[in-house]
Simulated scan of single mutants.
Amino acid sequence: MSDESEVRYKVAEAARLAGVSASTLRLWESQQLVVPVRSPSGHRQYLASDIARLRRIAWYRAERGLNPAAIREALLTEDEGDAATPAPGGETNTIGRKLRALRHARGLTLEQVAGDVGITASVLSTLERTSQGVSFAVLHAIAAFFDTTVSSLSGDDGLRDGSMVKSGEWRTWPQTTPGLTVQILAEGRNQMDCHRFVLAPGASSEGAYRHEGEEFIHVLSGRIEIILDGQEFHDLQPGDSLYFESRRHHAWTNRHDGETVLLWINTPPTF
């Protein structure tokens, strides 16, 4: 059974759970009080953490009579206060804790980081608290802002001894992006990031990203579309491979009606 934090609620369901109308949810989104994730087709989807936030917004509005600006400030104050409270899920919140620590070490607010990255403070707050709710492209942008890598945030701590990783014993990144599972195929601080990507139907990077280095992709099963620089399209199927420079903008989408499994290697480890 999936964890409740992984459930996605449609607008009507979220409105019912929060005790408000669907139009109110859209209004609150326009006021940047809450920002839902988007499905591959662009539909709004609310996480369990979003439902809790919606209920807090409704309470502040009804019981305290606060305007949107005051509600936003109250919510941000709550989020900052959560820093000393471990989030449920233990290791599943690793990325969020690391990002919060990096932000605090630089003395930055949620708004400052979110503004530079191009997201809202509420989205960044949700990521810090739950390690969920952003696209792969956004996660990469946040890692770059803090001069680190997605790999470092997700899986390079607690390295195991030895160069061999037996089949099925891969360590897995915390699942930050819906539909994406990343498994570590080579332990240690090496010159290559070696990963096994498992993409659910419709999973995508939801935008392009780039970094230094070179990349190699080999499709084990399924089908994936890789787009380079927004104009070069590659439809890869089982047995196909692609090699490209990482500094090129690249985006991807699972075009298979089932899972797509990839061998994905980056060198040097700038991913």
Rank of each mutant, 00 (worst) to 15 (best):
residue 3 D to A: 15
residue 12 A to C: 06
residue 14 A to S: 01
residue 19 G to L: 07
residue 26 R to G: 07
residue 34 V to C: 05
residue 40 P to Y: 03
residue 41 S to M: 11
residue 42 G to Y: 04
residue 50 D to Y: 02
residue 65 G to Y: 09
residue 72 R to L: 11
residue 91 E to V: 03
residue 92 T to V: 13
residue 94 T to G: 06
residue 95 I to Y: 08
residue 95 I to C: 12
residue 102 L to Y: 11
residue 105 A to D: 14
residue 106 R to K: 15
residue 107 G to V: 09
residue 113 V to I: 08
residue 119 I to D: 05
residue 120 T to A: 13
residue 125 S to V: 10
residue 126 T to L: 12
residue 126 T to A: 09
residue 127 L to T: 02
residue 132 Q to T: 15
residue 132 Q to S: 14
residue 134 V to A: 04
residue 137 A to H: 11
residue 137 A to C: 12
residue 139 L to N: 06
residue 143 A to F: 01
residue 149 T to Y: 04
residue 155 G to Q: 04
residue 160 R to T: 13
residue 167 S to D: 14
residue 169 E to A: 13
residue 170 W to I: 01
residue 177 T to M: 04
residue 180 L to V: 15
residue 194 C to D: 00
residue 198 V to W: 01
residue 198 V to C: 01
residue 199 L to G: 00
residue 200 A to N: 08
residue 202 G to S: 09
residue 212 E to F: 08
residue 219 V to W: 04
residue 220 L to A: 10
residue 222 G to M: 04
residue 223 R to K: 13
residue 227 I to L: 15
residue 229 D to G: 10
residue 233 F to M: 06
residue 234 H to L: 11
residue 237 Q to Y: 00
residue 240 D to N: 13
residue 243 Y to W: 10
residue 250 H to W: 08
residue 257 D to C: 00
residue 257 D to K: 10
residue 260 T to D: 01
residue 263 L to M: 13
residue 267 T to W: 07
residue 271 F to H: 11
